[in-house]
Nucleic acid binder design. Structure first.
Lengths: 196, 196
DNA sequence: AATTTTTTATACCGATCGGTATATTTTAAG
DNA sequence: CTTAAAATATACCGATCGGTATAAAAAATT
């Protein structure tokens, strides 16, 4: 790992939470310079443009969410518990307000949808990946004889993901997790209803 | 209605869709000057700051959504049909891509949640109002003997609103309404299940 | 250790940002 | 029609924007 690679990574690490919080357009190079305690010349020696930093920051944030989520689910043995762990992960991250600036998919996606086709496409793919992940677990549960075959994996994955993203968005704006709790409980209830 | 009042309204009308599309921070006074074909002096003769324009634009957009939604629901006679009309309204607005830049609550809320407490509070109130509206219709349906008393109005309103906001967000990023259709169908299904 | 290459710091670029002072024009009151 | 008041246009402000040329410093190669 060369010095430049390490510095690139360092810059992304410091910039990502700021961009996730303030938005891409509202985050200035100066914000990043201050956060890294580097200079503008150093930043532009490692990145071609602010846009490139934003793209890498997005990838970094998504990778971290995926890693944390996988970690949380890995401890579960049944498919039911995997889904529960997934929902709990989302609930817990949004519940801990400290240093949590919301789901990067939501933040980057909402800003990019009418202005930044590259980011928009990245978010779109991440949405599909997450939904597929949920559907896959449901299907595995059906195959394992854990869930009833009438459990519609596609429909549930769409409903669950939309509800979780919507719920996290509401929780952040309301400043509490009351409604997110209702949503997670309802999703768990639906899973239990389809358990044999 | 004085000239100034008319001009204020005119500016808000022209600025609102731009702010909803690009975001508050990314929309410049120059964007508004161009859209209105006025001059900067004229704009600042009618508004104290860009912030004030953003606030009025938000109010304007929300009022329009509420008006359109009420109109769509007014044609329904039963509470079931009112809920159906509400869901169809959201589906139809997100389905018409032309000139639709997404739900103002979603756009303003996501940008404001970590940066603009005033807008954040406005969005928070609007979320509560919309959820209460849904819950109220469900309760009215129960009272009218239309729905089973086991239909939990609070839980349903939270689930439905989160799912619709999440669904519209997904539809805009994916560029199609496939998943929003699944969501609306699922919500209608749930209502029908609670119909007597 | 010497030298070449890479990385970082300084100083600056034109453009644009939100906002304002003031002159001109338009509107409304008498 | 006159005139006072309100609204609009012009020209400008300092600050900040993203980005760059170049010099100084640090790292890597020999």
């Amino acid at each position: 790992m060369t010095k430049a690679e390490r510095t690139r990574h360092f810059i992304v690490e410091k910039a990502a939470p700021i961009i996730n919080k303030k938005g891409m357009a509202a985050t200035s190079i100066n914000d990043i310079v201050e956060a890294t305690a580097l200079t503008k010349g150093s930043v532009y020696g490692n990145f071609e443009s602010k846009d490139e930093i934003c793209l890498e920051a997005f990838d970094y944030l998504v990778k971290r969410v995926v890693a944390d989520m996988s970690m949380a689910m890995s401890r579960a043995s049944t498919n039911r518990d995997k889904l529960f762990a997934l929902f709990d992960y989302y609930f817990n991250t949004v519940a801990q307000q400290e240093g949590n600036y919301g789901c990067p998919l939501m933040n980057f996606g909402t800003e990019a949808d009418d202005t930044n086709p590259v980011v928009k496409h990245k978010v779109s793919k991440a949405i599909q990946t997450t939904e597929n992940l949920i559907a896959k677990i449901v299907k595995a549960g059906i195959d394992a004889g854990e869930f009833k075959p009438s459990f519609d994996a596609e429909v549930f994955s769409i409903k669950a993901f939309a509800m979780i993203e919507g719920g996290m968005w509401i929780a952040r704006l309301q400043g509490n997790t009351k409604q997110m709790q209702v949503i997670v409980d309802a999703l768990k209830q639906e899973i239990n209803d389809y358990c044999k």
